[in-house]
Design a protein around this nucleic acid. Structure first.
Lengths: 183, 183
DNA sequence: CATCTTAAAGCCAATTCGTCGCGTCTGGCG
DNA sequence: CGCCAGACGCGACGAATTGGCTTTAAGATG
């Protein structure tokens, strides 16, 4: 496995950095392993040995992009928090960049651990929002329900029907979830 | 473009057939473009020109596999029809073969048209079930709602959380959808 | 029905990519 | 401090991909 410090860590960091730089410069579709290796100052065989192929490498990098960098803002009520989070989630995920990160994360992932990580990120954020609401004394649905009713439909549309997706639709999901689960 | 008949169509058919045969013989992961081309009796450059790369070809073939071959059975009531269809859908899609078809369909699909096709297949089947129920005089949710409440959660779990998925969960989705939308 | 047009396929050479074996180096551990 | 397992660099080989040019045949036209 990857040793925690030293050379291995440096190689990993510089390869990831090379992927980010090059995908900004020449576009994600033009990336090749030799190109990335050269930019990272590493030989191609190192990349092949560590990651197997380009897709697994891109999957690793994509997961890092998909990690939320801040915790969800507190707007004082569950509907407000959930709406705001949903809106931000939609914005990040449905952009062309977001879609390709999701696809990369899913596709170069034989054992499903990267995809599971993405799902865990969303679940954490939702947990936070629901716990906050619970402490305020609000009635809340549980995390799984929020995932089924909001996250899953959004991602389904992002992946399978990119054209039928907008902010009003996302708000409708939040509204119908909350009006029935806590009437 | 692909000409409707004649040589182009023959090439397309024989390449698709070669993919199916070879993926059964040597396994999907061992497929290569030259190998497929040879089996299909064409030159590799033809495959590269028509499909771009192996992933796009596999994506095309995967969509054909995902096309439902029969229309949903009629069990006399909406809950029965929807339960049966959901069960079958889950079984087909969550099997290892189903999962890899879905992934292939998504993967080699820059413009999202193949993924859109898959979604359209499911929507057609659901439409059929709902229309039948409507003609019987049953109250029915609309197609989009069924997609959001059943198809999307199932696919989300198939793709992102393959371990937390079973038939009882699927039935729960159907039950909670129907008990609230048509009480 | 003969001819023309043109998309698509064939063919072959040049290039690039992916894999493998072996020697070297480095970080962690006794 | 010195061993050693794991990770990297190097180089070479085979396979895959790309590009330019020629040939074929589907479909249109008169």
């Amino acid at each position: 496995m990857v040793r925690p410090g030293g050379r291995s860590a440096r190689v990993q960091a510089s390869v990831h950095a090379a992927v980010r730089e090059l995908s900004a410069e020449v576009g994600r579709d033009a990336l090749t392993v030799p190109m990335i290796a050269q930019r990272a100052g590493v030989t191609p065989s190192t990349v092949y040995r560590r990651w197997g192929d380009l897709q697994e490498l891109l999957s690793d990098v994509a997961v890092e992009h998909l990690r939320p960098e801040t915790e969800p803002a507190d707007h004082g009520t569950l509907p407000a928090d959930l709406s705001a989070w949903t809106e931000q989630f939609l914005e990040e995920m449905s952009s062309p960049a977001g879609r390709s990160y999701i696809r990369d994360a899913l596709l170069g992932d034989p054992d499903g651990s990267n995809a599971g990580q993405c799902s865990a990120y969303a679940a954490e954020q939702i947990d936070l929002i629901l716990n906050r609401a619970h402490e305020r004394g609000e009635e809340t649905p549980d995390t799984e329900t929020v995932i089924d009713r909001i996250v899953a439909p959004l991602l389904y549309r992002i992946l399978f029907r990119p054209h039928e997706l907008d902010a009003p639709y996302a708000h409708r999901l939040v509204r119908t979830l909350l009006e029935r689960s806590a009437p």
